[in-house]
Design a protein around this nucleic acid. Sequence first.
DNA 1: GGCCGGCATCGACCGACGTCAACATCGACA
DNA 2: TGTCGATGTTGACGTCGGTCGATGCCGGCC
Lengths: 135, 135
Amino acid sequence: MDAVAYGRHVRTTTAPAPPRGATGCTGPGPTTATPLGVEEAHRLARTLKALADPARLRLLSLVAAAEGAEACVCDLTTPVGLSQPTVSHHLKTLVEAGLLTRERRGSWVFYAAVPGALDAVARALEDRLCGTGAP
Amino acid sequence: MDAVAYGRHVRTTTAPAPPRGATGCTGPGPTTATPLGVEEAHRLARTLKALADPARLRLLSLVAAAEGAEACVCDLTTPVGLSQPTVSHHLKTLVEAGLLTRERRGSWVFYAAVPGALDAVARALEDRLCGTGAP
DNA sequence: GGCCGGCATCGACCGACGTCAACATCGACA
DNA sequence: TGTCGATGTTGACGTCGGTCGATGCCGGCC
């Protein structure tokens, strides 16, 4: 038989068998269902939207690479080549997304990366969007 | 002395020693430098921007969870609750981002996840944005 | 050949976002 | 207490992005 049941639209057309075996990610897992509900999609998208900006990505890497894994605004404006209000705005976005922490020390405000936040995003991408969790 | 050199702004203010030890991610790595150049930031941001949308995240999960890890447009419009042109637009965005592949079979167009694409994004987040690669 | 169904493209609308200049705020220091 | 420097906030502007209706293209089917 050629007309395999593709969920719906079963028709006697020439539809060769799909490659199968691959779930989209590396592991050839057994097609475990991954619905990804509406609310979860919105939450993950909000975090990814905070990451989807070159300036914010560079800010994150600058903070992570700084001594003590923290940096103040005056240390970040020059490397990213943006004005201080713009950098402050981006940092606020990252803090609200749960990717950075804000701590005032003296006259300066130090930003530090939240431990495990990026790992959580990376794991969410792999676990929730790939068809399998573990073969 | 206690006024540690925070890169710049060395002043005799009350600046306690930073917590140290944490590079932002899970592993307490030894503060490996992670510059993340301008061009690399733009490329990663472009991919993340393609992911930073609830509709596209749901489309990706629907494709990954479908039989054979592939699905046609007519199978996706109803679950996401969007019009057919909108779904087609999102799918085109995902294809251009290298996250989906497009293949015409008969009257239908099947979309399938690119193996390893999400893993690459997840690894880039961990490797390039965390201060360490391995302790 | 004519018809039909699935899909992509076009044009338009509207909200969200990145950016900056100007101003306000807060803490330190003399 | 007054001044200065570092930072956050506001308002405005231009651009980008998501959504839809209408239309065009392409491949089967009768």
